[in-house]
């Protein structure tokens, strides 16, 4: 009786409901997109009404927001930050640069496709996306979480070898430490 499917469904529903309504966000603001976040979080657009609030460290965060381009040097730190986060964790790619390289399509030092290195749940298009788009992205992520489809972390664990191979292609002599998750 206690382990039947209905009970599981109800527990999953409650978990997903709290997860979607309480997103601790770690904004990895190395790109230009970080300038859109103060507007998103403060009086005018107020993302806190959706339950999104800033987290100070990766240990506390659920949501990694990658705002704009990533150079190979920052990619190392992003991978490290992502692996330090605790399950369940989500990633939002923010701006054209994370989607296809954007204006850095021929730059020798900027990665073009973020989802080859870490799993991305939602992309927000634009250069830069305005706060309305950012909030639309949060809403989309909440929809995915409620349906149980935001499973980037599981994908990362299952396909770790594939991700590691891609990462090694860019970060040649960098020791990629196995973090506990």
């Amino acid at each position: 009786m206690y382990n039947d499917n209905n009970a599981q469904t109800i527990v999953e529903y409650i978990k997903n409901f709290t997860r979607k309504n309480s997103l601790f966000m770690l904004a990895y603001g190395t790109g230009c997109g970080a300038i859109e976040l103060p507007a998103t979080l403060t009086s005018r657009y107020d993302a806190e009404r959706l339950g999104v609030r800033g987290a100070a460290t990766p240990r506390q965060a659920d949501l990694l927001l990658i705002t704009g381009y990533l150079s190979t040097k920052t990619l190392k730190r992003v991978i490290r930050v992502y692996e330090q986060m605790q399950d369940p964790k989500y990633v939002i790619g923010f701006g054209s640069c994370t989607i296809n390289g954007g204006m850095y399509w021929d730059s020798y030092n900027t990665i073009k496709l973020l989802d080859k290195y870490i799993p991305v749940d939602v992309y927000i298009n634009g250069c830069m996306p305005r706060p309305e788009s950012v909030i639309a992205g949060f809403k989309e992520l909440q929809r995915l979480i409620a349906e149980g489809k935001a499973d980037g972390a599981t994908k990362y664990k299952e396909n770790l070898d594939w991700y590691r191979e891609n990462q090694k292609k860019v970060l040649k002599n960098w020791p990629l430490v196995e973090y506990n998750w």
Binding site: D106, S107, I111, K112
Partner: peptide, 17 residues
């Protein structure tokens, strides 16, 4: 230094560009 060649060798490319 040929940037584009290096980029094609090193990085992935999204289809449609």
């Amino acid at each position: 230094f040929d940037t584009l060649e290096y980029v094609n060798d090193t990085f992935f490319e999204r289809e449609g560009r």
